[in-house]
Design a protein around this nucleic acid. Structure first.
Lengths: 237, 237
DNA sequence: CGAATAGTGTCTATTAGACATTATGCC
DNA sequence: GGCATAATGTCTAATAGACACTATTCG
């Protein structure tokens, strides 16, 4: 290692953890208990240990800081990108590897570790929040990634508790994209995408709801959708 | 920093630099002059300095190791992902941030720096080559990224020297995807994608080639294609 | 002229979107 | 019955793919 790379780098991970809560796209944030950015909200994350990959690290930190154990639940995890601005952390030279994680509605965080609090924040409320470090940039990139991936992957199903109805899945799309979708055309396209969802032998129980009981589905094995489920045109182009 | 994060990490960058050379998709590799993996071929790259971003670092290393100066030429550069296997480098704990770079045919490398040689290798020849570290994995991921991005972005145009004809651009798609494309339908779709290419007032000169002179184009400002230029179905699904 | 490449037109099968109709539960 | 939701069918405009035809150069 040359003089240019000394003193050493710290490598951290940060997670954009998304779910849909009360019909709102929401992110899991932790309140910082220490300077810098004390009392600001931050993405769950922390230092990578010497004997683990960044993926190991992000799962460990998520459990330590928020009590969310992804080993427990089916979910979606992917690397977003790495942020390396030399000024991104005033304490030392850090490089952070950011992840996008999608979990189902039922996931409940608990505070722990360095964080004084952990809770879901609807993305629409984030503007009024003080966000630590460059985490606002990471959040923006993460949300864009999720919206884009809805078109050609089955990530959307990771937002749903199993089993789910096609209406549940459609509401996920509508919430994330912010546009209404035609129920009939949506069902046609989802069922045409091989391996996206698989029907169960059950329907929604009759007693608990209004209207005709719906067919229940579980997640299929496909990760890429053929054909894609394209977002409706929004004027531009 | 806790004991777990000591001794420190080294942060490096690696670049999957692609072009089309003699009708073959090719990557820019450097021959290693030192152990480990002496005489094996590696991606251009190196250590990140303390006062630079990883993007700065990859451009600097590319110039130092191969003589390719991206400030000179229009090209495509994007982050691929970060590789963090604790065992990926036997000398020390490294995390490497990989990039994908696309340059035009005319780019010529020159050896320099730590590398004893730098040259283009057709991807079809890589199987017979000894590749250093985990760079084979990175190469695979990079090629997959390029192929996927051809569908919904204008990356393909970065492979072309300007000005170029629609046939030049089509041959880029055919080479990268490995499938023949209908000339008429290709032209229709490219011209329908607003901002993909812009026509110039010129045509190919008559003396140097056979057949009718072709309209010449330059790259447009669009990075995302609307509508997308989808790859033909290949049986599955 | 023929060969080679560029550019344009056309036909058809498929698909996306809009919307209507029927089905099945609750009160 | 009346209402709410689910499931399915139908019509039309747009699109993709196959392919034919015309245009322009060279030798």
């Amino acid at each position: 290692m040359t003089a240019h790379t000394w003193p050493p780098f710290a490598v951290t991970v940060d997670a954009v953890v998304a779910t849909i809560r009360n019909g709102q796209l929401s992110l899991l944030l932790v309140e910082r208990g220490e300077t810098p950015h004390r009392d600001a909200w931050a993405l769950p994350g922390g230092f990578v240990h010497h004997d683990e990959t960044t993926e190991d690290a992000v799962l460990r930190e998520l459990l330590e800081e928020t009590g969310v154990d992804l080993a427990d639940r089916i979910s979606h995890l992917e690397q977003l990108r790495t942020y390396s601005d030399p000024a991104r952390d005033p304490r030392m030279r850090t490089v952070t590897v950011a992840y996008v994680i999608v979990v189902a509605d039922s996931t409940t965080p608990t505070a722990g570790g360095d964080a004084t609090g952990a809770r879901w924040w609807p993305v629409d409320d984030l503007d009024n929040l003080e966000i630590a470090f460059d985490h606002n940039t990471i959040i923006g990139d993460g949300l864009e990634r999720i919206r884009a991936k809805f078109e050609y992957t089955s990530v959307a199903a990771a937002f749903c508790d199993e089993p789910f109805t096609l209406s549940d899945l459609r509401r996920v799309y509508e919430t994330v994209w912010g546009v209404p979708l035609d129920r009939a055309n949506f069902a046609r396209k989802v069922l045409a995408s091989d391996g996206f969802v698989v029907p169960t032998s059950k329907r929604t129980t009759k007693g608990t709801r209004i209207g005709r009981p719906a067919q229940l589905y579980t997640r299929g094995t496909a990760t890429l959708l053929h054909p894609a489920l394209l977002r409706p045109d929004t004027d531009e182009n």
